[in-house]
Design a protein around this nucleic acid. Structure first.
Lengths: 162, 162
DNA sequence: CGCATAACATTATGCGCTTAACCAAATTGT
DNA sequence: ACAATTTGGTTAAGCGCATAATGTTATGCG
């Protein structure tokens, strides 16, 4: 691929990232949410209670990020955290009533955002977008946590002695 | 658009943002750059010296971000900043020799990133991506700094009296 | 069983980008 | 020409997400 194409592509992705996030923020602010928290609510609304490690996997972000999102959503009363019955390390996360209501509103905002975003594109193009973007994301995420390759790259933890 | 589609789309964009940025970071780290700085170098390499306001427009980010990127690139010796001859408020930014060399390496990394990202997609699809993604970004950025609409939303500046 | 290793979660820290607030210089309107 | 506004730039503060390091519980192997 020549540089011009590569640059156009990377720039477009970068721009899209910034703008899409900014627009999401604008739509979520009236709901009292910051971008990042909405996906957690939506995931819980879709798949029911789960532990944070599962959320981390589902949302595609790292555990510390989940901890922070969850803390804030708990503080605002939209989710509840309790020790998992089967594993005393894990924290089970579930929606509260308020969280369920909020999730409905988030769903509306989410639809608005998507509809705004694809204005001017043909129906077929729009239909093919999720898969294309999914492929792009997967490709960009290669070299990450083993989709079958080596996963043996875990450092020995440097267990502090004293 | 139904929620499932909207969600798939938004999630894919979100994921792509995270992954693409992460991959960019991984490729740029060996060059001593953090993601965000590369686009400034590339823009200067492409269009020659310009003032920060122009950079802000070209990169699609806010002036304070440009100030920060530029500060760091100046500190690492890749760009030079000087007062603009025609406008005493403005700062003219240009590449140093070291910056030009680095920009070449960034170009290579940029190509690698793009090529990795589109693996598995048909040639036609790849060719259509920049325009599609550009449209998405533009749509998501609507309601921003007037593409012809109202631009009169400037607050009166609260000129502190005492 | 007992010990090493892996997994879940958290805290601390760092970077990028944003908005808000501000100074300085240029432009416009009367 | 002078006041009001607009534009260029910077600093301060805030948030999201990342990695590094740590505590705690579960698991796997001798």
């Amino acid at each position: 691929m020549d540089f011009a194409r590569a640059d156009a592509l990377n720039q477009a992705i970068r721009l899209l990232s910034l703008r899409h996030r900014a627009r999401a923020a604008a739509l979520l602010t009236p709901l009292g949410l910051h971008p990042g928290q909405e996906v957690l609510l939506l995931e819980l609304a879709r798949s029911g209670p789960m532990i944070q490690a599962q959320l981390s996997g589902a949302l595609g972000c790292e555990p510390p990020s989940v901890t922070l999102m969850a803390s804030k959503l708990e503080a605002s009363g939209h989710i509840r955290r309790s020790p998992a019955p089967t594993d005393r390390r894990a924290t089970l996360v579930e929606l509260t009533d308020s969280g369920r209501e909020l999730a409905d509103q988030v769903r509306r905002a989410w639809r608005t955002l998507a509809e705004e975003t694809v204005v001017g594109l043909g129906e077929e193009t729009v239909a093919s977008l999720p898969e294309i973007l999914g492929t792009l994301a997967e490709n960009a995420g290669a070299g990450r946590r083993a989709t079958g390759a080596n996963a043996t790259t875990r450092r020995p933890r440097r267990t502090g002695r004293g």
